[in-house]
Amino acid sequence: MGKTKIKDLTDEEYLHHGSLACAGCGALLAFRHALKALGPNTITINSTGCMAVIMQMGVPKVPHFHVLFENGPAVMSGVEQALDIMGKRGDTNLLVVVGDGGTADIGMGSLSGAVERGHDFIYLCYDNESYMNTGGQRSGTTPFGAATTTTPVGSVVKGETRPMEMRKDVPEIMIAHGAPYVATASIGYPLDLIDKVKKAATVRGPSYVHVFASCPAGWRSDAKDSVKLAKLAVQTGLIVLFEHENGERTFQHLPKKRKPLREYLELQGRFKHLLDDEDATRELEDYVEGKFKAIEG
């Protein structure tokens, strides 16, 4: 499959303007790009989360079902099996879009079950690293040190204390399931994201695309920096973009020389307290270092 270029992108939009998203919403960009990749013959499901709220009042131009918090993959299992037995599947894409809380935490069982059973659908997780729809609480993907409303900066404990290595790594969990296509993407690299969603659509069976998506409201960053932050996360090495299929992993936009983490951290209020804390920033640097050692061998 060829790489998508900007001039190849359709001018067609599958989400109406005027959604309820905050300015600079990364999740909305993830969904918008995914639908540009898939086109109108797509049935979409949102588990509860920001996206379900953003989509209300007729934003999507494709069939859209806002389901419960934890059951998106289960509902899609039923859609897929019904279309199959009724002979109505054709080329219809089935896309489930869920945040990190609905994916890594409350919906893990439902996702695991649907992937293990091998349903033919695409699962897109927009990861903004906490429960943003309820105002920014800590989730299973919240990074070490980040201040959230349930891991606030106090006089004794400052932000999330669980080490980076123990974050719930859903892409790796999906690879362990034997999902035929697993990829990570970032809204900072939309063409790469579109290529990955397109690839996911061609794969038979479950595909999992984990999209890093900035959140100005929860990260306490400037809306104009959303795309910049989604790039910086990759350029600093905190986030690694890859594709995994047929047992092979390939990397995209892997930085040859990583930018200092500080450039990423200092743009976000959630990390402000870390800037003067050498131990804490070293913990993050060690994590990136260790990850790249493993990648580069």
Binding site: I45, V67, G78, V79, Q81, A82
Partner: peptide
């Protein structure tokens, strides 16, 4: 959840 999904496509 799965029968809800199946039913909503008919």
């Amino acid at each position: 959840s799965a029968v809800v999904g199946a039913s909503i496509v008919g």
